[in-house]
Amino acid sequence: MPRIVTMAAAQLGPIPRSETRAQVVERLLVLMRDAAARGADIIVYPEAALTAFFPHWWIEDEAELDSWFETAMPSNETAPLFAEAKRLKIGFHLGYCELAHEQGRKRRFNTAILVDKSGAIIGKYRKIHLPGHAGHEPWRPFQNLEKRYFEIGDLGWRAWRTMGGVMGLMICNDRRWPEAWRVLGLQGTEMVMLGYNTPQHDPAMPQTDPLQDFHNHLSMQAGCYANGTWAVCVAKAGVEEGIMQIGGSCIIAPSGQIVAQALGRGDELVMAACDLDACTPYKETMFNFARHRRPEHYGMIVERTGSLPPD
């Protein structure tokens, strides 16, 4: 019998700074109910899904900065999501900005959680590959201050056996790094869930602006193929506070093929029935790590010569 998990990618359109968390959660609930009515097992929301993407702005006031973060999950504002997931018997992935009091100090992370069909949090990941810069760069039309506002994630990439398969999480810029996919692949991950907020314009490298959608899908499709996994990849898209963010939310098969994709840059549900057994041929043949992968030899040229080989 095939192992079918029906996945829903819940793309969000822009979230204005004036929109409250309660208003955003109502948008998420509309998408969740639609997904459940269409038979979804899990719905995946974007990175930092509860607010506008504040790392685009320079913030000096500590209280103002803290206001963009969640100090508890579920919180009063997000509790309806958990209650509705339990009622509808649907799992969900949620990206948010986490303010934790750990190690005797205040810590901030770009975080994602996986919630099962009972409404219980069963997995948590903190973003490792933080893009952008830490200092104010006024020449930019907008900032990318994740290195200022977040710590590097300290939970590693874990996979969880739940809801019919082996599930893994990553966030936004992680998708561009093969190591993120491979660490999850080595754990037998069959479904990766990731959200992103990606501007169409890169002020530091504007020549790549026309390639943003291509590079987005390239990195995710390659990661799926090279690790024999499905992925549900979900954007917060459209013009948010004057900044155009790419869409392209999609569901990708272990073959690397996109099987479903968003058509616009607003709130939109993209769904696919994903057979997790489709991962098996890739994991047992082409990407059978135990048989073919040889990490013990990867560094031998550098070890022998003390340098990279000549061009």
Results as ranks from 00 to 15, higher is better:
residue 113 I to V: 15
residue 203 P to D: 00
residue 175 R to K: 09
residue 79 A to H: 12
residue 69 F to S: 09
residue 133 H to P: 04
residue 76 N to R: 13
residue 45 Y to S: 01
residue 162 T to F: 02
residue 7 M to I: 15
residue 151 E to A: 14
residue 265 R to N: 15
residue 191 M to A: 09
residue 288 N to F: 02
residue 121 I to R: 13
residue 63 A to V: 12
residue 196 Y to M: 14
residue 281 P to F: 02
residue 172 C to Q: 01
residue 147 K to G: 01
residue 37 A to T: 13
residue 128 I to M: 06
residue 238 G to V: 07
residue 192 V to W: 06
residue 11 Q to L: 06
residue 265 R to C: 13
residue 117 K to N: 04
residue 3 R to G: 11
residue 157 W to A: 09
residue 3 R to T: 15
residue 304 R to L: 15
residue 137 E to N: 05
residue 177 W to E: 02
residue 52 A to Y: 03
residue 119 G to M: 07
residue 72 A to F: 07
residue 197 N to W: 09
residue 160 W to P: 06
residue 240 E to P: 11
residue 151 E to R: 11
residue 105 R to G: 13
residue 164 G to K: 08
residue 202 D to E: 01
residue 84 E to Q: 15
residue 133 H to W: 04
residue 23 Q to K: 07
residue 73 M to A: 14
residue 1 M to K: 11
residue 24 V to E: 00
residue 274 C to N: 02
residue 15 I to H: 00
residue 127 K to D: 00
residue 154 D to H: 11
residue 263 L to D: 03
residue 220 M to E: 05
residue 18 S to V: 13
residue 49 A to K: 13
residue 283 K to I: 09
residue 298 Y to C: 02
residue 252 I to R: 12
residue 262 A to I: 10
residue 104 G to P: 07
residue 122 I to S: 13
residue 202 D to T: 11
residue 213 D to N: 09
residue 224 C to Q: 05
residue 242 G to E: 00
